[in-house]
């Protein structure tokens, strides 16, 4: 078995104002191993996104209370980083692709500028060098005319193209871990398959482990090695994908499976 690149132990997320309310994530623990695609599945609202944002350190402390015994990324304990140190790791060692390609990119900067700024920030590149790396990266994620993409604003691109730009930004620094939060939910079916295939292929090529958040068991069956099932903020099942489909143990998994079957029928 490959060594773990990301270890999460007893991660809980609560709203800062109402400690009496049910936590969004409740003592979540799991390991993400090198090179694998680990699916995090569950109904919408079960706490998948909040778990991911907590790992990335994106939850603002005046709204969310995040506690964890351990969130370790290859030897670095993320919970003990200063904001500056965390900023150096985010986008280079661990990265994220978001659900909404419509709003996740800054509308007033070109795609090229936004990708360049990742290279500049984490690789210390200058203007020329970051431009060349960006053009190469746009080519790598399947743009036939990288130059044109470079000069486009997000609103000028289709949803699938925007998500590719997002993937290019997330994978630019060949991170150890990529969290993909429902990366294709907002896209149409054919585009979905292309974008996911691209993502997984790129992860394999760069040796990036992927935490794939989804509610779609079809996606899980096709791309993931293992799956975590989340329900009501808790991880209720952790199994290899074939086992999950053959012998679901938790009612939440059964429900998910029946929904997937219903969707097929």
């Amino acid at each position: 078995m490959n060594p773990a690149v990301l270890t999460v132990r007893n991660l809980s997320v609560q709203t800062a104002s109402g400690p009496g309310q049910r936590p969004a994530a409740d003592h979540v623990s799991f390991e993400l191993r090198q090179g694998e695609v680990l699916a995090l599945v569950g109904e919408s609202g079960c706490g998948k996104t909040k778990t991911a944002e907590a790992i990335m350190g994106l939850l603002s402390p005046d709204r969310w209370k995040v506690t964890a015994d351990e969130i370790r990324l290859e030897g670095t304990e993320l919970t003990r980083l200063t904001p500056r140190e965390a900023g150096r790791i985010r986008g280079s060692e661990i990265s994220m692709v978001f659900q909404e390609p419509l709003t996740a990119l800054d509308p007033v900067f070109t795609c090229g500028y936004q990708l360049c700024s990742v290279f500049r920030r984490h690789r210390g590149m200058g203007r020329r060098e970051s431009r060349e790396s960006s053009l190469a990266m746009f080519g790598r994620v399947g743009f036939s005319d990288p130059e044109r993409t470079f000069n486009s604003y997000p609103h000028q691109l289709s949803g699938g193209m925007r998500q590719r730009v997002m993937i290019a930004m997330a994978m630019a620094c060949r991170p150890a871990v990529l969290i993909a939060d429902e990366p294709t939910t907002a896209l149409d079916v054919t585009t979905q398959a292309q974008v996911l295939a691209q993502l997984v292929e790129l992860g394999r090529a760069y040796g990036t482990a992927i935490l794939l958040i989804t509610h779609d068991l079809g996606v899980v069956a096709q791309y993931a090695n293992r799956a975590l099932v989340m329900s009501g903020g808790k991880i209720v099942e952790n199994a290899r994908v074939d086992e999950l489909f053959d012998r679901p143990r938790h009612p939440a998994t059964v429900t998910l499976l029946s929904h997937a079957a219903g969707a097929v029928n």
């Binding site: 944002e53 990335m56 994106l58 900023g87 150096r88 790791i89 985010r90 986008g91 280079s92 990265s95 994220m96 978001f98 909404e100 709003t103 996740a104 990119l105 800054d106 509308p107 700024s117 990742v118 920030r121 984490h122 997002m166 930004m169 997330a170």
Partner: peptide
């Protein structure tokens, strides 16, 4: 949302 993206990329 895009502010969250910017933060996610450091």
């Amino acid at each position: 949302d895009h502010i969250r993206t910017a933060r996610a990329f450091g």
